Amino acid sequence: MSNQLNVIEARGNTSCFSEQNLERLMVVMKDRIIPEGSHLFWEGDYSDKLFYVKRGRIKLTKSTDEGKELILYMYQAGDMVGQADPFFSTKHSFTAEVIEESEIGVIDQKDLEVLICQHCDFAIDFMKWMGIHHRLTQTKFRDLMMYGKPGALCSTLIRLSNTYGEKHGDTILIHKKITHTDLSNMIGATRESVNRMLSDLRKKDAVEYENGMIVIKDLEMLQDICHCELCPNEICRI
């Protein structure tokens, strides 16, 4: 393993905004510090705000009637969180939980509408942001539905590597501790089946563990299993 360390750049989902338009967002947002374990919003709450993550991590989840949790997105600094439908009074379809103490910029819908109405270039950037969200959702459901649980797991490992990965020579260290329960919640599988699939990948020398963190040793094997379409990193992320 090489001593040289390269951090994989995980661009926030607001990278589609120009510097000027991102600054316009910064001006209207109100900063808040949200403690770990709190929630930005619950499923069923009215969607009248967007949330810009300046620091920390947020997970977006969907719960079933049986109480099982499915992790749909993991947000970090540079990401904007919320239901992307200005001009309409809707309710959140998901719950946003703060998993690290976070600094959040809160953007009211009325301020967003003013920016969209006053600046056509901002409206175009906002449409691009909405497009990224739609593509991210489409590719995640493709991975979950088309290639079985092994394909969904391999896709999730690739997305984790693009979001939290550090290159060490030919391997990639996912520098966030991800439990088997987390992985099972990300792909809608049981923890036991995730244990079994990870054990198979370790036997094939595709992944290993280092200090409790996942190391990807054979990225191409994972890509073959999930029929990877080589999406850009702003789409292929957790």
Rank of each mutant, 00 (worst) to 15 (best):
F94W: 02
H180Y: 02
C117H: 13
A189H: 00
G78E: 07
E69C: 05
T163W: 02
T95I: 11
Y46S: 10
Q4W: 10
T190D: 12
I104R: 01
D170P: 01
N211F: 13
S155R: 00
T163H: 04
M213E: 13
T190I: 04
I158Q: 00
Y209D: 14
R57Y: 08
T64D: 10
S161F: 01
S102W: 02
N195K: 11
M197R: 06
C16E: 11
D45R: 12
Y73P: 03
D48L: 08
H119C: 08
M197A: 08
L173C: 14
K59E: 07
I174S: 00
E19P: 06
T90L: 07
V114R: 05
G151V: 03
Q20E: 15
D48I: 07
F122L: 09
I225C: 07
P35R: 05
A152Y: 00
L50Q: 03
G105T: 02
D79H: 01
Q118I: 14
I174L: 02
M146D: 08
Q20I: 14
C154V: 02
R142Q: 14
K140H: 02
S199F: 15
H119Y: 07
S161H: 02
H92D: 06
K59G: 07
T181H: 06
V114W: 04
L40G: 05
G78S: 09
N211C: 13
M197N: 09
V114F: 04
S15E: 15
L183H: 03
I132W: 01
D65P: 08
H175P: 10
K54N: 11
L72P: 01
I174R: 00
Q138I: 15
